[in-house]
Write a protein that binds this DNA or RNA. Structure first.
Lengths: 239, 239
DNA sequence: TACCTTTATGTAAAATTTACAATATGCTCC
DNA sequence: GGAGCATATTGTAAATTTTACATAAAGGTA
């Protein structure tokens, strides 16, 4: 990039090209058995009543990477959530009437425990199952599809989902997390063998209580062990 | 995102926030035994004489994803090259005096065969070995580092490098491509066994000619076979 | 024909993957 | 206290894959 007063030959000399830039967030909500996406319904304007991904126009006095956190904070009250950029949509005609470039981020949170708030010009906010996304404005359906692919790839490289589980969790919870996000079914025996062998989980010696069946063992995540694996280029092959 | 006349509550009402947006390209050049990056030297302006990644400000009448191709075309004359977005840098203070958001793309091409041209306000253009990148302007060194990580990850999922090899190539060329890009050394016997077993290469039955040693067999890439693998979530584990 | 350089290849041991189903536990209800 | 219910937990044999490692083959050159 040549960001000084000398403009490139493809740009108009001495005239800085300005653009409208927004941030769109695919906020994935993990439940015990379903993966959902947070959608907002526009309050007014041309798109009144239509459903869309939560997002906002960027502000030039705020770091771009802080924007998705702000969106999330306004809709869920959550802070310090895992968020990652996965794409940028920049076709000239993706939005009618004006060219809007959007940075697409995904986040992964727990749908439980947090109360949704309307905000950001939204009349309504709701969780929708990933398999049942309605028609959204612009290219938002495509953004969700790509976001899910990015999430799945990420999960195979990093167990980002453990942060959504309690400090101590059962192997079944751990497996369901993978199954739900990756949208696959796993063989329990083989999955456990693999995870145990990798050593990223530690048996706490405790058992869950107050369950009306055999109490499962509780495990914790061994971050050190995992960091060791990641430095060697970790990729979880499960099908 | 709520891109209609109704602005979000975090934005100033009825005033569209505009931004300066650029594209920076980490153009990787593959040689027989080295991975290089294309750098340009600024012609004039505040950054005169300093080295940087090639890039340009975006134009609002051109699809964002077409920009890196245009940059590449101007510097190398190459068209239809593999290019992929891997990050967006958007900190407020990453560039002095004005906030510039940049979309970072990487490309992978062959340094041979193509003549570099100065262009885009560049006084000079050159290939620099990935291990010897000088201090660049702004956060360009960081962008290269991230671009290399993205390239390595991509190569493990897709054999993007084959397009840089001749239609018919030797297993040694194929192996060197992986070694150079991933910056590792591979065991020849094990690498060949793995690749052959995967079936993504076809023995053409021909041999290279005019070599002053045992003539190696020539192979071609089996795109169909690879597509089959990719649909099952391909990831090449080699160390 | 001897030599140089690079290609091509095998194998045994260890580790991993795969495909399967029966038993163990804790609680509830009678 | 025993039967029933629901989930947790676990093993194994076969097939496949990975790992570590060294020698012979081929083509050209001198």
């Amino acid at each position: 990039m040549l960001p000084d007063s000398n403009r490139s030959r493809t740009s108009v000399k001495n005239e800085v090209q300005l653009s409208t830039v927004s941030v769109d967030c695919v906020i994935f909500g993990l439940e015990a058995d379903a993966l959902k996406v947070l959608l907002v319904q526009h309050d007014s304007g041309v798109m009144e009543g239509q459903w869309a991904l939560p997002g906002d126009y960027i502000r030039n006095d705020i770091d771009l990477e802080k924007m998705p956190g702000m969106v999330l904070s306004q809709l869920t009250g959550l802070d310090n959530v895992f968020v990652e950029l996965f794409d940028v949509m920049g076709k000239v005609d993706r939005v009618s009437h004006q060219r809007v470039i959007t940075a697409a981020y995904f986040a992964l949170i727990n749908t439980e425990k947090y109360e949704l708030k309307t905000g950001l010009g939204a009349r309504d906010v709701k969780w929708v199952d990933i398999h049942n996304i309605p028609a959204l404005i612009y290219d938002h359906n495509e953004i969700i599809k790509r976001g899910h692919e990015a999430l799945k790839l990420k999960l195979r490289r990093e167990p980002i989902g453990v942060e959504l589980l309690p400090k101590l969790f059962t192997l079944t919870q751990f497996q369901r997390m993978y199954e739900t996000i990756l949208d696959i079914t796993l063989d329990t025996r083989n999955f456990r063998k693999k995870i145990i062998k990798e050593g990223i989980l530690q048996d706490s010696g405790q058992k869950e209580v107050n369950v009306p069946y055999r109490a499962p063992n509780l495990y914790s995540f061994d971050a050190e062990k995992y960091d060791e694996l990641r430095s060697q280029g970790y990729f979880l092959n499960i099908y």
